[in-house]
Design a binder for these strands. Structure first.
Lengths: 106, 106
DNA sequence: TATATATTTAACTAATACGTTAATTGGTTA
DNA sequence: TAACCAATTAACGTATTAGTTAAATATATA
């Protein structure tokens, strides 16, 4: 099941960090690898898992492979699950969500 | 970091199912175990991981140990991360979230 | 006390995930 | 073609995870 795969994929700090980097702009595999201490093959593997989960898309342009975030898939899964668990809660307002992000990042 | 642990903990279908069961009401370890095909010790282990991640709380009452969902922790983490990745998107309206939940459950 | 029930802990096995380095593939350019 | 750069795949070691059964702990009750 795809939700299984998405949560499995999100259970990795480097992969979540990759998604955060991609939230601002598309990046090549090399761009991404240069932001981490680990080897390029390791990052390539992470990218391929993110791709398999549908969380990113990739496109080769010349020598380079550009990766882009698939926001819809990510947001659908997370909000969908949160709603399944917690159907009573209303949607968080912008400020509350910012706060949650802050809390969550510590 | 606690977000690490929470995502790690959510990367397990049985654990997510436990959370879904607990969303409706508190349940004993035995109640929960009876809903799964696996052994009671296995469920106990899942519960202890959920507890360690702060996603549930437990209370012994006589022979039984009751587990309750910690909604705040779950919702904060998921929305917080979604917002970090996707700060531009507005909060989903109730119907959209229902839809996302439906999509996410297939 | 003795016995039964609920739950957890211990010991163990099998499968999976993550990182490394070396080799390979795809594309560019001298 | 040769040399080079980007990225992926292959092969491999290590660590972690998820499940099993057996044993231990906690509480209730005859």
């Amino acid at each position: 099941m795809t939700v299984d795969r998405i949560f499995e994929t999100l259970a990795s700090r480097p992969r979540r960090e990759i998604l955060a980097y991609l939230s601002a702009q598309e990046l090549t595999a090399g761009d991404i690898a240069s932001r981490f201490a680990m080897s390029a093959p390791a990052i390539s593997r992470h990218l391929s898992l993110l791709d398999a989960a549908g969380l990113v898309t990739s496109e080769r342009r010349g020598q380079f492979v550009f990766y882009r975030l698939n926001k819809e898939s990510l947001v659908n899964t997370l909000t969908g699950f949160a709603f399944e668990i917690c159907p009573t809660a209303g949607p968080l307002k912008r400020e509350s969500r910012k706060l949650a992000a802050k809390k969550a990042s510590t």
